[in-house]
Simulated assay, not measured.
Amino acid sequence: MPLCPACDTARVSAELAESSRTVVNRVWAERLGVSPLAFGAAEPILITRPELTAAVSLRLGATTAVAAPEEALALLRPLAAEQLIAGAALLTALEPLRPQLLGAASLSFLEGQPETPVTGTTWIAAEADVGSVLDQCSGDEREESGLGEMTHRWAAGARRGEPGAAAGYEVWGDGLAHLGVAVAAGARGRGLGALAAAAAASHAWSSGLVPQWRCRLAHRHSARLAERLGFVRAGEQIAINLGAAGEERTTR
């Protein structure tokens, strides 16, 4: 089965400060349905979620957690922690359930105000023409950015020009600001995405939230943008669709 080669590359690159780590662990624990105290354990955490039709593997710091229906967890229990966050190992173990890789992503977080890009020849405004930026993006780009559902949004453009990038965030668990960014095809390479993202991250941090940047491992440009703004990579996530499990669920 084809697999993105980046799915098994080097993982976590840095540790978060305790205050940020506490927030990140709490919010992700709530989303997975476990106690925040679970993060910090050396042993993998396997979470039975019968309603899921996918296996979601997450690593934060030294802890790996997997949420999936029991038929998937039964196949994953023999795996070591390193294998539970490796795409190839997961796909092999889950072969009886006809798995399909949905995505592998890094998780980065910002501790403080972002590095603000130079704005001498650009403009930034809240909610200004965000829709026109999204209209210039493909359906997949709009969906991946998540901006259509976000309530805190900014647009950026060249001075006296049309908006070329947009960014925003949605609040997760009263602690994380999950960021999304979209850049129109004709406006790439001008720093507008960084400008819009910096505005969103700055607003989130000033509001007492920890900004979160989720980036597919294959999207190196997005990873570089996060690093440029000061985000620290501290986790990763893999989601694998379970075809057989989903079909069984729909016929019950």
Rank of each mutant, 00 (worst) to 15 (best):
M1A: 13
C4Y: 13
A6S: 14
C7Y: 08
C7M: 11
T9M: 09
R11H: 12
V12I: 15
A14I: 04
L16N: 08
L16F: 06
A17Y: 01
E18A: 14
T22Q: 15
N25W: 08
L32H: 11
G33A: 08
G33F: 09
G33S: 10
G33D: 13
V34A: 06
A38R: 15
F39H: 08
A41D: 03
A42L: 11
E43S: 06
I45V: 15
A55M: 09
S57Y: 02
T64S: 13
A68S: 09
E70Q: 15
A72Q: 13
A74H: 11
A74N: 13
R77S: 08
A81Y: 00
A81E: 07
I85V: 15
I85A: 02
L94G: 07
E95W: 05
P96C: 04
R98T: 12
Q100A: 11
L102E: 15
A104D: 15
A105F: 08
S106M: 04
E111K: 02
E111V: 11
G112A: 04
Q113K: 13
P114W: 07
E115H: 10
T116S: 10
V118C: 11
T119D: 13
G120N: 10
T121C: 07
I124G: 02
A128T: 09
A128L: 12
D129L: 11
L134D: 07
L134R: 09
R142V: 06
R142M: 04
E144K: 08
G146I: 07
M150G: 01
T151A: 13
A155N: 01
G157P: 02
A158I: 12
R159L: 15
G161P: 04
E162I: 11
G164Q: 04
A165Q: 04
A165T: 05
A166Q: 05
Y169N: 01
E170L: 12
W172Y: 06
D174W: 02
D174Y: 05
G175E: 03
H178P: 00
L179F: 05
L179K: 00
A182W: 10
G191F: 00
L192Q: 06
A194D: 01
A197L: 06
A197Q: 01
A198P: 00
A199K: 02
S202D: 08
H203R: 08
A204M: 05
A204E: 10
L209I: 05
W213M: 02
R214V: 09
H219C: 01
H219L: 09
S222A: 14
L225D: 00
E227A: 15
F231T: 10
F231D: 03
A234F: 03
Q237E: 15
A245N: 12
E247S: 11
E247V: 09
T250F: 12
T251S: 14
R252D: 11
